[in-house]
């Protein structure tokens, strides 16, 4: 019983982190469920896709391509390029996921944009098992997504209130995380290169084709700026150490 209540405590500490995703995924999932059932498919297909594909953008594109005679190889290749950004998310999780043990494959499978953005800055509060904390963040998000897909497929057509603009919730989530990151460090080279590369590539390649060029541009930029970035990191760490010794 003791372990069960501990696990429950870990779950409770992870839940508040995921509330923005709860709202965002329910809405997006509902939109997806409506889209798929509008095409004549059973709502359980929406649930199944939410369960095994679990990719917002990927699922929407998959439904848009869903015509008789769809070329599976084309669909596969398109999904690979569409989701290529996940390769870069993995880089930041190599160390973090080392502790995950048997749950590591699930963590990798469930690494969506939103879960990635939460896990980047997630630190388990004191007394909370970090493994469970990370795992529950991923699992809750996945659950919200499946629930949204199911709701959309089942009752989507009954929704009548005006939801225009609700998709801003994901923008707001990423902005608050960026603000937190900005406050946490004085080393702003990475985020500034991120904005510069993303905007430049958006201008050059246009809205539907800029993600992959931007990812490559960001990587090159960070590698070129590695020395100044690491110098600043070291300086900041030294400053923190100084404060620590002062406090003693």
């Amino acid at each position: 019983m003791k372990t069960a209540s501990r696990v429950l405590k870990d779950l409770k500490s992870a839940f508040p982190r995921t509330v923005p995703i709860l709202l965002g995924y329910l809405f997006l999932g509902i939109a997806f469920g409506i889209l798929l059932t509008d095409k004549g498919y059973h709502w359980l297909w929406a649930v199944f896709m939410g369960l095994v594909v679990y990719a917002g953008m990927g699922q929407f594109v998959a439904v848009n391509m869903l015509f008789p005679g769809v070329n599976f190889l084309n669909a596969f290749l398109l999904q690979l390029t569409l989701n290529a950004r996940h390769i870069f998310y993995g880089l930041s999780m190599l160390e973090k996921f080392k502790i995950m043990g048997k749950r590591k494959p699930y963590m990798i499978f469930a690494l969506t944009d939103e879960t990635y953005s939460l896990l980047c800055s997630a630190k388990a509060p004191e007394g909370i098992d970090e493994k469970n904390f990370f795992f529950f963040i991923a699992l809750l998000d996945h659950g919200y997504w499946i629930l949204g897909c199911a709701l959309g497929g089942l009752i989507g057509s009954l929704l009548t209130f005006n939801t225009t603009g609700i998709d801003f919730i994901m923008t707001a989530l990423f902005i608050t995380i960026a603000v937190d990151q900005w406050r946490e460090t004085k080393n702003h080279i990475p985020v500034l290169s991120g904005f510069a590369c993303a905007l430049l590539c958006l201008l050059v390649f246009g809205a539907s084709h800029f993600i992959i060029p931007a990812l490559l541009c960001i990587t090159v930029c960070l590698l070129l700026l590695r020395k100044p970035i690491e110098k600043r990191e070291a300086k900041e760490k030294a400053a923190i150490r100084e404060v620590d010794t002062d406090a003693l």
Partner: peptide
């Protein structure tokens, strides 16, 4: 892996 989260958050916002 350390530098990317900040840069990718910028990309996600854009």
């Amino acid at each position: 892996g350390q530098a990317l989260p900040c840069a990718l958050m910028a990309l996600l916002i854009v």
